[in-house]
């Protein structure tokens, strides 16, 4: 079989990306949906930031801190949601049986939905970041290479949640679909997106430091307020992400096997 490394085929992953490209290019509604909510949120937070900048020294000190927090948080949420939606598209269309009887391996399927998560997120976030620059004179790209580190860590965590959610929905069916929309928000209070970890009660601080987003958003604040890049925080996030990604994949493969035992790969759908 062409393009295979250790039984992992780039060609088959490419086939799945082709399937999602056909879907996106054939549907304006889907493209608009990818951009719409991030854009609305960014505009609302942009005006709020303008208002608060004249009222509080904290926001005045680092004008883009709320907008940067919003856009990075939304990147995490969009990656997780996009991974889940790419998977749900197969459930909605009752296509899982066709896919898993083809030579496509579960790991290749997982890789394709993870890549689609990033592609869909970039399709939404790049236009929104340009809008923030245009309307509010804030460029998230002013964070330079640090932005790539923040984004990469959030993508990894979004992948970990997203792939676990895919496994969960495969195992428990479309009745568990709402988890795809809600999962990431479970972490929002302890992700330290808009306030530092020290604001949290001590016991919740321990929870926050066990999750990669807290490291990313503390790192973001250090950069925007103090102008310092905290490599230690990035490495902390990366270490945790490797752990969570491993757990996410293990959960997906475990639930995939459970679905095979229970006969849920044939005939799941709306």
């Amino acid at each position: 079989m062409s393009g295979e490394i250790f039984g992992f085929s780039a060609n088959r992953i490419g086939a799945m990306l082709r399937r999602h490209a056909y879907l996106l290019t054939g549907s304006w509604a889907r493209i608009i949906d990818i951009i719409y909510w991030p854009a609305v949120q960014m505009i609302m937070w942009g005006f709020l930031t303008q208002f608060l900048a004249g009222k509080t020294s904290y926001v005045a000190q680092a004008f883009g801190i709320l907008l940067a927090g919003l856009m990075l948080w939304d990147s995490l949420f969009r990656v997780q949601l996009s991974v889940a939606i790419s998977f749900l598209e197969e459930m909605w269309s009752r296509n899982l049986g066709n896919l898993f009887v083809s030579p496509l391996r579960p790991s290749e399927f997982a890789a394709s939905v993870l890549l689609m998560g990033v592609i869909r997120t970039l399709l939404g976030m790049i236009p929104v970041s340009l809008m923030a620059w245009l309307f509010f004179d804030f460029s998230i790209y002013s964070m330079g290479f640090a932005l790539a580190g923040f984004f990469a860590n959030l993508v990894l965590f979004g992948w970990a949640i997203g792939i676990a959610v895919c496994g969960l929905v495969m195992r428990y069916g479309l009745g568990a679909e709402n988890i795809a929309w809600a999962a990431t928000f479970l972490f929002l209070p302890v992700a330290a997106v808009y306030y530092p970890v020290t604001v949290l009660p001590v016991w919740l601080q321990a929870v926050a430091w066990s999750l990669p987003p807290a490291y990313v958003f503390e790192g973001m604040r250090a950069l925007l307020i103090d102008g310092a890049f905290r490599g230690d925080l990035m490495l902390g996030a990366l270490g945790l992400n490797i752990l969570y990604l491993g757990l996410g994949f293990a959960a997906f493969l475990g639930w995939f096997e459970a679905s095979r035992r229970r006969g849920q790969l044939l005939g799941q759908g709306e």
């Binding site: 079989m1 060609n11 088959r12 799945m16 056909y22 296509n95 066709n98 083809s102 030579p103 005939g267």
Partner: peptide, 22 residues
Amino acid sequence: YVDLPHRLTVRQNLRVFAQLYD
């Protein structure tokens, strides 16, 4: 008990499976 994605055309669906089967 299975179906092909409804939003894709017949040609697109078959093209995807042709690639999956190399």
